[in-house]
C-alpha cells in the first residue's frame, strides 16, 4: 500500500480521534471504502456541518446550533434554578434523567491546580455575569465528585455566597442498586454525611 496515498491519509486522520488506535483506524478506513460512495459523502457532510454550525450558546455556554440554545429559550423551565456542570455531556446526562427542569451553565472544564487549569480557563466570568443579571434563587453545583470537581465547587461557592444566592451541591454516596459490602470508605463516609431523615407516612 502506498504510505502517502489517500488510504494512508484516511487511516492517519481516523487514528487522531480519541480511543482509536492504528488497527481500529485501518478497520474504519476500509469500512468506509467498502460502503457505497454516498455513505462517505454523508459522513463528510455531517462532520463539516457539525463543525461549522455548532458553537457555544451565548447564555449557558453549552454546545448548540441555535443561539440561544433550546433550553435557554424554553419558557417552561424554572427560571430560579441554575445547574452548573463541567462539560456539555453532563447536560445530556442530566436531561436524560428528567429530574431537573431549571437552566444550565457549562464551565467547559474543572479547576485543576496541578494541571495549571484555573478559573480563568473556564466560563466562570460568564457565570458570574449571568447570576448578576438574572434572578436565580438557587445554584446547584453539579461538578464531578473528585478532587477537581471539589476544588471547582468550593471556589464557585466562595464567589457566589456573598450574593445571597443559595448554593447547593449534588449529593455524594451510594449509587442506586449498590451493595454496602462493596462500597469504598470515601463513598460510605460521604453517604453518612449526606444521610436523610425518613418520615413514615402512617405516623
Amino acid at each position: 500500500m502506498n504510505g502517502a496515498g489517500p488510504i494512508a491519509r484516511l487511516i492517519d486522520e481516523f487514528s487522531r480521534l480519541p480511543g482509536i488506535g492504528p488497527k481500529t483506524a485501518q478497520r474504519l478506513a476500509f469500512f468506509v471504502l467498502n460502503e457505497p460512495p454516498e455513505m462517505a459523502g454523508g459522513l463528510a457532510r455531517a462532520l463539516l456541518d457539525a463543525r461549522e454550525k455548532i458553537h457555544r450558546c451565548q447564555v449557558c455556554c453549552d454546545l448548540t446550533d441555535t443561539n440561544p440554545c433550546n433550553i435557554c429559550r424554553s419558557p417552561k423551565r424554572h427560571s430560579d434554578l441554575l445547574c452548573v456542570v463541567e462539560q456539555p455531556r453532563d447536560v445530556v446526562a442530566i436531561e436524560k434523567s428528567r429530574g431537573f427542569k431549571g437552566f444550565y451553565h457549562v464551565l467547559h472544564g474543572a479547576i485543576s491546580p496541578m494541571s495549571g487549569i484555573g478559573p480563568n480557563d473556564l466560563t466562570v466570568r460568564q457565570l458570574m455575569e449571568r447570576l448578576l443579571n438574572n434572578n436565580f434563587k438557587e445554584v446547584i453545583l453539579a461538578t464531578n465528585p473528585n478532587v477537581e470537581g471539589d476544588a471547582t465547587a468550593l471556589y464557585l461557592a466562595r464567589l457566589i455566597n456573598p450574593s445571597g444566592i443559595k448554593v447547593t451541591r449534588l449529593a455524594h454516596g451510594l449509587s442506586v442498586g449498590a451493595s454496602l459490602e462493596y462500597a469504598d470508605g470515601i463513598t460510605l463516609s460521604k453517604s453518612f454525611e449526606g444521610r436523610q431523615e425518613i418520615i413514615s407516612s402512617r405516623s
Binding site: I111, P113, M114, S115, G116, G118, P119
Partner: peptide, 8 residues
C-alpha cells in the same frame, strides 16, 4: 503549576 491557583 499549582502556584497560580494558590496566588489567586
Amino acid at each position: 503549576k499549582s502556584c497560580n491557583f494558590i496566588d489567586l
